[in-house]
């Protein structure tokens, strides 16, 4: 089972396009998403998970969006 930290994410939802994270909040700091470097989907049982690899220019983050409960989690963080 995937574990992650629940986080606040500002997202642009556009018809016909995948949701695009714009910024997220971590440790009371707002991180602006400079680039979504990769996107992929998987499933845990019947629950789909949308993975976004994003960078704020300082580090690489893997954010997961669960459309079932509309929640975002930070799954991984890697300093570049």
């Amino acid at each position: 089972m995937m574990q992650g930290i629940p986080i606040r994410v500002a997202v642009i939802f556009e018809p016909g396009k995948k949701a695009m994270p714009v910024w997220f909040q971590l440790n009371r700091r707002q991180h602006k998403v400079l680039e979504t470097t990769y996107f992929w989907k998987d499933k845990v049982g019947e629950t789909p998970h949308f993975h976004y690899a994003v960078t704020d220019g300082e580090a690489l983050y893997e954010l997961i969006f669960s459309p079932v409960d509309q929640s975002w989690t930070l799954y991984r963080q890697q300093t570049e």
């Binding site: 470097t37 690899a53 890697q78």
Partner: peptide, 10 residues
């Protein structure tokens, strides 16, 4: 290549 796309530093 997928990993290099995911992480620009690579």
């Amino acid at each position: 290549s997928v990993e290099q796309q995911t992480n620009p530093a690579l």
